[in-house]
Computed example of a mutant assay.
Amino acid sequence: MPPMLDVSDEVRAEIGEEETTRLLTGANAPGTYDCTSCRTPGDTGQERTSTVLFVGDETAVLAFAHAACIPSQVVPVTEEQLQGAVRSMGGEEGGTGAPGAPGMPMAQGGGAPVTMPDPTPRQAVLGITCGLIIIEDTLRPALVIEPTGPVARVGATGAGDDFLPLLIEQGFVPQLDLEAPPSRLGGWSVLLATGKLHAVLQPGPGGPASTAWWQAHQPLQVSEGWRAAVNRTNEVYVYAGPAGSIGRQPREDLMRDALARACSRGLLVAATMPLAGT
C-alpha cells in the first residue's frame, strides 16, 4: 500500500519528478516519523502526511509532518541555520529526519496555543492571544505571544532560554514603558484576510519576499472590536515574553496587568507591525 503523502507543487518542483515518484510509491518514504510541527509520532500508512522541504543555499532537508498540522511546503532558511539543524539531528546530511524550523523559531499551526517547531530536543508550544490594549488613551489591537517552555538556539545545550534574545536579534525592541507604542519593525507584518488572522510574516532569507513566522492551521477568528481597531490604524502591536512571564489571561484588563508586570521585570519585547490584507 503506497504511503499517504501530500507533495505540494513547490516541493515537487524542488525535488524533481523522479524523487516525487519514489516518495509517492513508498520507495523512499518513511513508515513512521516524528512530525516536524508537533513532534509526536506519525505513520505515513495510516494518516495523511505532508512533505516539508527545508532549503538552504547549498543543502536541503526533507522532513515530514501530519497533514493536519501543516501543509506540504518549501521553507527557505539560511545555510547556517540548516547546517545547525542537521548537526542537531546527529550529523546526518539529509534524509527523513524532522529538524523543525532552524534558527529563529517559526510557529505554524492553528488555534491558540499552536505548536512551534524547535530544532532542539526541547519542545515549546507558542500561545498567541488577540486582544485590545489602551495606549495613549486609545484602544489598540495587540497580539501577545508566549511559549510554554524555554526556546533554545540551534545546537544550544543546557537549560537556558533564548526566546527574547532571538527576537531582539530579529529587530524586536525591549519594551520598557507599556504606555509608549512599540517601535516599528520593518519587513514584518500581520496577515488578516476576510476578517480572520492567518499569519505573522517575517522577511524572507536573502530576498524581499515574506515568509510565515507563525501561520494558523485554520484562520483564527478575531473579535469585532479587534477587527475594527486594526482597520482604523492598519497596524498591530505585537508583544512577546518568555515562558511564564505573562500567562493566559481570561480578560483584557488582566492581560494588560500581566504585560505591565513583565515590562517592569524587563521580560517584554515588542514591535509595531503593519497590517497585511484586510
Rank of each mutant, 00 (worst) to 15 (best):
D6W: 08
D9V: 13
A13N: 11
I15W: 02
T20P: 03
R22K: 15
L24T: 06
A27L: 13
N28Y: 10
N28I: 09
P30C: 07
Y33G: 09
T36A: 11
T36M: 10
T40G: 09
P41E: 07
P41A: 15
T44S: 14
Q46H: 14
E47K: 12
T49I: 06
S50W: 05
V52H: 02
G56A: 10
G56Y: 02
D57R: 11
V61C: 13
A65M: 04
A65I: 00
Q73S: 11
V74N: 07
P76S: 09
P76H: 04
V77R: 05
E79M: 08
G84H: 09
A85R: 03
S88E: 08
G90L: 13
G91K: 13
G100L: 06
G100E: 02
M104F: 12
M106I: 09
A107N: 00
Q108P: 01
Q108Y: 06
G109Q: 06
G110E: 03
A112H: 09
A112F: 01
M116C: 09
D118H: 12
P119Y: 03
T120V: 12
T120F: 00
P121T: 08
A124N: 01
A124E: 01
V125Y: 00
I128R: 04
I128H: 02
T129Y: 10
T129D: 12
T129E: 11
G131H: 05
I133V: 15
I134G: 12
E136L: 11
P141F: 05
V144D: 02
V144N: 05
I145P: 04
P150Y: 05
V151G: 00
G155C: 06
A156Q: 14
G158I: 03
A159N: 13
D161H: 01
D161N: 12
L166T: 13
F172T: 00
V173A: 13
L176G: 14
D177I: 12
S183I: 15
S183T: 15
R184T: 15
R184N: 09
L185T: 07
V190H: 02
V190Q: 03
V190N: 02
L191F: 12
L192Q: 10
L192W: 07
A193P: 03
G195Q: 01
G195V: 03
L197M: 06
V200N: 00
L201V: 07
P203N: 07
A209G: 15
A212I: 06
W214E: 07
W226M: 08
A229H: 06
V230A: 08
V238Q: 04
Y239A: 03
A243I: 01
S245Y: 05
R248I: 10
E252H: 11
D253M: 15
L259I: 11
A260Q: 08
A260D: 10
V269W: 00
P274W: 04
G277D: 01
T278F: 13
T278W: 15
